[in-house]
Simulated assay, not measured.
Amino acid sequence: MTDDEVKRVYFNFNSAEPIYLQVAQQIEEAIFTGSYHEGAQVPSTTEISRDFHINPATVLKGMNRLVEAGLIVKKRGIGMFVAEGAHAVIVDRRRKAFYQDKVIQLIKEAKGLQISEGELVDLIKRGF
């Protein structure tokens, strides 16, 4: 990993969230932000495990989640690479989650506060 990539990666070893999920999330975030472009090679399990003192099997488990999700592909003997269309898949999934997790909750809260649809739209435009 480059120095810039290392600075952006953070694993919370005290978190209840398993490290393999954090590995998957870190790589997904790097794809989302453009740090890893489609077709680019991602760091190997050996690099990540060595750089962050994580068991290689744990790193591989996280990377395999991304393979199963179609975000990275294994090229035997070469390494793992960002899949074509991975960024679009992430954006689509995050848009859906944004709607479910944020927009629906916002509407519920607005209704509870007796904010009309028009007022809510105005508030969003003002904030945007």
Results as ranks from 00 to 15, higher is better:
residue 83 A to Y: 07
residue 110 A to E: 12
residue 88 A to Y: 10
residue 116 S to E: 08
residue 99 Y to N: 04
residue 58 T to G: 01
residue 6 V to P: 00
residue 105 Q to S: 15
residue 105 Q to L: 04
residue 20 Y to S: 06
residue 22 Q to S: 12
residue 77 G to F: 03
residue 38 E to V: 11
residue 16 A to W: 07
residue 89 V to S: 11
residue 36 Y to A: 08
residue 90 I to T: 05
residue 11 F to I: 09
residue 18 P to R: 09
residue 78 I to Q: 13
residue 92 D to S: 07
residue 52 F to I: 05
residue 43 P to K: 08
residue 20 Y to Q: 11
residue 31 I to N: 00
residue 124 I to Y: 10
residue 87 H to L: 08
residue 128 F to W: 07
residue 82 V to Q: 07
residue 116 S to I: 14
residue 74 K to Q: 05
residue 104 I to S: 08
residue 28 E to L: 02
residue 106 L to E: 14
residue 29 E to Q: 15
residue 11 F to E: 01
residue 7 K to P: 00
residue 89 V to P: 02
residue 48 I to Y: 03
residue 47 E to Y: 12
residue 106 L to Y: 05
residue 89 V to K: 12
residue 125 K to R: 07
residue 3 D to P: 01
residue 64 N to V: 05
residue 82 V to T: 15
residue 102 K to W: 05
residue 125 K to T: 07
residue 67 V to G: 03
residue 71 L to V: 04
residue 78 I to R: 09
residue 17 E to W: 01
residue 120 L to D: 08
residue 42 V to T: 12
residue 83 A to W: 02
residue 11 F to T: 10
residue 111 K to N: 14
residue 71 L to G: 00
residue 101 D to M: 12
residue 94 R to L: 12
residue 90 I to K: 10
residue 103 V to K: 05
residue 68 E to W: 01
residue 56 P to T: 13
residue 78 I to M: 09
residue 119 E to S: 11
residue 69 A to W: 01
residue 31 I to A: 03
residue 122 D to E: 12
residue 5 E to A: 06
residue 118 G to K: 12
residue 121 V to N: 06
residue 127 G to C: 02
residue 122 D to C: 08
residue 87 H to C: 09
residue 61 K to C: 02
residue 53 H to F: 09
residue 47 E to C: 04
residue 82 V to N: 06
residue 2 T to L: 11
residue 85 G to I: 02
